[in-house]
Design a protein around this nucleic acid. Sequence first.
DNA 1: CGGGATCCAGTTCGATACTG
DNA 2: CAGTATCGAACTGGATCCCG
Lengths: 227, 227
Amino acid sequence: MPAPPEYCPVSMGAEIVAERWNLLIIRELLTGARRFNDIHRGLPGLSRTLLSQRLRTLRGHGLISAAADPTDGYQLTDAGRDLSTVLEALGSWSVRWRFPEPDGAQLNPHLLMWRMRGGLAHDRLPPRRVVIEFTFTDDAGDRPERVWLIADGEDSSVCTRDPLFDIDVFATASSRVWHEIWYGRRSVRESISGGTVRLSGEKHLVAGFVDWFGLSPFAGQVAGRPT
Amino acid sequence: MPAPPEYCPVSMGAEIVAERWNLLIIRELLTGARRFNDIHRGLPGLSRTLLSQRLRTLRGHGLISAAADPTDGYQLTDAGRDLSTVLEALGSWSVRWRFPEPDGAQLNPHLLMWRMRGGLAHDRLPPRRVVIEFTFTDDAGDRPERVWLIADGEDSSVCTRDPLFDIDVFATASSRVWHEIWYGRRSVRESISGGTVRLSGEKHLVAGFVDWFGLSPFAGQVAGRPT
DNA sequence: CGGGATCCAGTTCGATACTG
DNA sequence: CAGTATCGAACTGGATCCCG
């Protein structure tokens, strides 16, 4: 913001919030990202150069700080963490007024997998490496897109290329269906039992699958959720 | 925002909120401004050209609409009005983390008077024109700045030049003191009785003065408020 | 009063290449 | 992995003038 803001609480806050990407960077940190490249992955369209700049100005505003161990990246300060109140108000507002069902171009399976990775319940996963292959069947024309999710203890990652590990669970559904699930518009359990999501693999892993994933923080508020 | 936002509630909201001025324009409308020039007065630093553009995009987003009578300017839609939840969260956050006492350069008596005008309790004013002359005594070096507030029924205005009306009440205090009062850091009543704010004029008008003005929406939350 | 049109300066940003 | 440096393109926004 070029000119210093008016002495008014809303203007003071707008100085942070009205700068592109700032809120989204905070969101990434609030949802668990710490390292530069992880933050960057969650923000398609943001260049590394600009992310670097923004992190600096956010540090200048006292919203984030470099972690003690530099390889741990960044962490939110108390002030930064408290921005969650604003994020919640904003997300809730959007859900009420500008969150219609996505059109096809808005579906981004890779990014969605990255969000779902963030919501993994590591403590409910088996205490060993688990590899899941997701096949997205959105468009019959293209060859179906595939993404691999690898969870191992506290670590997890998402790959676009075959990691060449043994696959524990194969999951097949449209990207749209996964979006509906993530945003609480559709129940995972019913989607599996109804065959909309098809799973295969070792029996007890397939049985556990449904408990591994969380939902979007706004899932409870999105219109069109299952009856 | 150039690229279409991610399909995510926070990103959808950020598309509005992360565009400069948008939140402040909404604030002006929420606090009673309707006409183009009134909105503009509350936003120093914003050019008319840009305000015009922003009003158009906000209309495109369905947050505001032109009033039925064109001379009535703009009004918020339901969606726009509901942004008050976000404004409140943002203002509260700022008050918690980035709202220290202002330094001298941040004090803007004219703008403050404009805000106080918005908070006038017209129903407590006498049912005729009332003219108040405010004299700001911040800096002994300069000649003290003066601003006139004219209230008449439902109408009210703020002038920088002597309106050449008879003055009903003269109010003398520093701009800083008025800021402290507006943000709830100081009690009007005590400031008057203690002589920090000096009033003169017709006796019953001076007695009523204290009830004519409201406080900032965030007054109750600002640190350093009177004991 | 409430803008629209034009022109131009300043700023922002992405791409690319490079460093530790 | 986590940035920095540089450069040019694109965009933003203010000034000015004009219109109904």
